[in-house]
C-alpha cells in the first residue's frame, strides 16, 4: 500500500473527492492504468496534471486525435525523411536510429524515473485504438522491428486515461484498467472548486451564482448542460462586470457564458418566462 503520507491527496489547485484520491492511490500502488470518465468539465485531464504535481513526477501528455494510431505513441519511423536524405546524400542514412523517434508512450517507458503518462481523450481515436495498446500497457514493453529491439519500461509509468465517451472502450481494454466515473460535483464541492480559482471571491456572490448555476442545469432537455468551466467563466464575467449578488438572484446576466447553444437559450428563456413567478428577464 502506498504510504498514506506519500499518497496522492489532491493538489493546491485541484480538488479531488475522497473516493477519487483513494482510487488514484490504489492504481498507483498496483501500477494499473486508470480510466477516467465523466461529464465535460469535471476535471478529467486536470487530474493527471494534479497527480504529476502532487507526487512531483514529470508528466507526458499524449493527446489523441481522430487520426492517431496506436503506433504513433510508441515510435515513428520517418521513412520519407530517410528516403529524402538518401537522395541528397548529405546525411548519414546508414544508422536507422536517426529516423526512429519515440512517441509519448515510448518516452515514458524510456524515462529513468517514474513519470505520469496522460493519454488524453482516448475515445477520439478509432475504435480499435485501445485494443492496439493492450499489450503495451499490460506488459509495459513493445518491440521495434526496425531495430529488432525491445523497449521495456524502466519504471512502470502512472497511466491516466481520459475518455469523453464519444465511443465506447473495448471490454478487453477496460478489464486491464481501473475505472472511475467523476460525478458532477455537488454544490458544496463546487464552492471549494470555485474558491480554488477565485480565492478572494465574495461569499455571497459565489453562493448565489452557484445556486443559479445548478438551477439552470436542472432545466429539462438542455442540449448541452453547462459544466464547471462555464461556471468559472460566468463568475469571472460577473466579477469583472461588477454585478452584485442581489442582481443574480433577480435575473441571469451574461447568459451566453453559460448556455452556448441557441436552442438551449431559447428553451431556458421560454421556461423562465413560463414560470412567471420566478420573474426572470434575459439581459441580452
Amino acid at each position: 500500500m502506498a504510504n498514506a503520507a506519500q499518497g496522492y491527496k489532491g493538489s493546491e489547485d485541484y480538488i479531488a473527492s475522497k473516493p477519487l484520491m483513494e482510487i488514484v492511490n490504489v492504481s498507483v500502488a498496483l501500477a494499473k492504468p486508470l480510466v477516467i470518465k465523466g461529464e465535460p468539465g469535471t476535471g478529467k485531464t486536470l487530474l493527471a496534471h494534479s497527480i504529476s504535481r502532487a507526487l512531483n513526477k514529470k508528466l507526458y501528455i499524449w493527446n489523441v486525435k481522430s487520426s492517431t494510431k496506436a503506433k504513433d505513441g510508441l515510435y515513428v519511423y520517418d521513412t520519407v525523411q530517410r528516403l529524402n536524405d538518401a537522395r541528397f546524400k548529405d546525411k548519414d542514412i546508414t544508422d536507422i536510429r536517426h529516423y526512429i523517434k519515440m512517441g509519448k508512450l515510448g518516452q515514458a517507458f524510456k524515462s529513468d524515473v517514474q513519470v505520469v503518462l496522460l493519454i488524453d481523450e482516448i475515445d477520439k481515436a478509432d475504435v480499435e485504438f485501445p485494443n492496439d495498446l493492450l499489450n503495451e500497457l499490460d506488459e509495459m514493453t513493445f518491440h521495434v522491428p526496425e531495430l529488432d529491439e525491445e523497449v521495456v519500461a524502466k519504471h512502470r509509468p502512472i497511466v491516466i486515461i481520459t475518455s469523453n465517451s464519444e465511443k465506447e472502450l473495448p471490454d478487453a481494454f477496460l478489464r486491464r484498467c481501473i475505472f472511475h466515473y467523476i460525478e458532477f460535483p455537488d454544490e458544496e464541492m463546487m464552492e471549494r472548486i470555485v474558491k480554488v480559482h477565485y480565492p478572494d471571491i465574495e461569499a455571497k456572490l459565489m453562493k448565489e451564482a452557484i445556486k443559479r448555476f445548478y438551477w439552470i442545469r436542472e432545466v429539462d432537455g438542455l442540449r448541452k448542460k453547462p459544466s464547471t468551466s462555464e461556471l468559472i467563466d460566468w463568475i469571472k464575467a460577473l466579477t469583472l462586470g461588477g454585478i452584485s449578488a442581489d442582481k443574480i438572484s433577480a435575473e441571469i446576466p451574461f447568459l451566453g457564458t453559460i448556455l452556448k447553444n441557441e436552442l438551449d437559450t431559447d428553451r431556458f428563456v421560454k421556461m423562465s418566462q413560463g414560470h412567471g413567478s420566478f420573474g426572470f428577464k434575459r439581459r441580452f
Binding site: M1, K18, P19, E22, I23, V26, S27, L34, V35, K37, E168, L169, D171, L174, R175, C177, I178, F179, H180, Y181
Partner: peptide
C-alpha cells in the same frame, strides 16, 4: 483499509467499467 467506504468506491473502480 478494511473500510466499507473504500470497499464501495475502490471496489467499484475494479469491478465496474462503465457508469
Amino acid at each position: 483499509q478494511s473500510s466499507l467506504n473504500n470497499l464501495y468506491y475502490v471496489g467499484r473502480a475494479f469491478l465496474v467499467k462503465s457508469e
